[in-house]
């Protein structure tokens, strides 16, 4: 396989809650190859955000990595000390957050915040500010030099997201994690931001782990896709595999629910019948069996193995039709 920046092996994360242990992620295997874009798609609550908090090691206080490894550039993130982690964050790995309006500190200027993230570099403040302004122009902020003196509330949501993208790329990371960066924006802006990310990724050659619940965005931007359901990575493969030859029944059902593929006029949008199982009381067998149209006896009894369909395309299912 291609050399990977991030290699997640058999990762399980749980949350301790008063009602019991929530097994938020179970046995996740995922690789992010160098300079490629990997998308993670899934419904709300499927564990996408838990996964990235585990990767960047900024987890909730009640979260616990129960098993597995998170190898970033060869080292397991779990065994790094806080200073070592700080050395990685904002240098080799950076992040773009979901809500751009709250992701910037409201009482410091954009310039100050962009200079501060370069605190490791031994160049003058002026040079740092210049780099910040250059980056702002690159992400499409006009009149960048004078806008360094502005505060976050002087910018619109789309502008703020451009700024956070500029910040994330300013440090020239090997891996950029984008946690639903377009969810808080309207559709037009979403397209602009995705195009921007795509262009910049090509220029900077950084790997991106991109989280979204928007299938079209994933299809547009990513090289590889992982489909998550209720804390498991049920299928992964290249964009073509997932969108043209989906193997897992959940992936198929999810693609059928995408309003943009519906051709006939309908009063009801398609949905997947049933509900997501409780992550405290996990059902036996396959996590998807009670909603799966193809479920058989074996699906209710044993957890499906990870079946390889092609070199990069795998799915967790007993009854794959390939």
């Amino acid at each position: 396989m291609i050399e990977s920046v991030l290699d997640i092996r058999n990762l399980s994360v749980s949350y301790a809650t008063p009602r019991g242990t929530v097994q938020a992620l179970r046995r996740i295997n995922l690789k992010v190859p160098r300079a490629k874009v990997v998308g993670l798609v899934g419904e709300s609550g499927c564990g996408k955000s838990t996964l990235i908090s585990a990767v960047i090691r900024l987890m909730a206080e009640n979260a616990l990595v129960a098993a597995g490894e998170i190898r970033f550039l060869g080292q397991d993130m779990q065994y790094l000390s806080p200073p070592e982690l700080r050395g990685i964050r904002g240098r080799d790995m950076s992040m773009v957050f979901q809500d751009p309006m709250t992701a910037l500190n409201p009482v410091f200027t954009i310039g100050r915040q962009m200079v501060d993230i370069q605190y490791r570099d031994g160049v003058s403040k002026k040079a740092k500010a210049k780099r910040a302004a250059d980056m702002l122009s690159l992400v499409g902020i006009p009149d960048a030099v004078s806008r360094l003196d502005n505060y976050p509330h002087h910018f619109s949501g789309g502008m703020c997201q451009r700024i956070t993208i500029a910040m994330a790329l300013l440090v020239q990371p090997k891996l950029l994690i984008a946690d639903e960066p377009t969810t808080a924006l309207d559709a037009t802006l979403e397209v602009q931001i995705i195009r921007l990310l795509k262009e910049l990724q090509a220029d900077f050659q950084c790997a991106i782990l991109f989280i979204s619940h928007h299938l079209n965005v994933i299809a547009e931007l990513c090289d590889f896709v992982g489909v998550m359901y209720a804390g498991e990575l049920v299928e992964k493969g290249s964009v073509r595999d997932i969108f043209q030859r989906p193997a897992h029944p959940y992936t198929r059902a999810l693609l059928e629910c995408d309003p943009s593929v519906i051709e006939e006029r309908t009063r009801f949008l398609p949905t997947i019948p049933g509900e997501i199982p409780s992550l405290i009381d996990l059902p036996e067998g396959c996590i998807f069996h009670d909603r799966c149209p193809k479920a058989e006896q074996v699906c209710t009894k044993t957890r499906p193995p990870e079946v390889s369909i092609t070199e990069h395309h795998t799915a967790l299912c007993h009854c794959l039709e390939v």
Binding site: R86, G87, I88, R89, S94, M95, A103, D116, I117, M167
Partner: peptide, 9 residues
């Protein structure tokens, strides 16, 4: 959280 994600001291 974002500041932490950038590894600020």
């Amino acid at each position: 959280r974002r500041a932490r994600a950038f590894g600020l001291p």
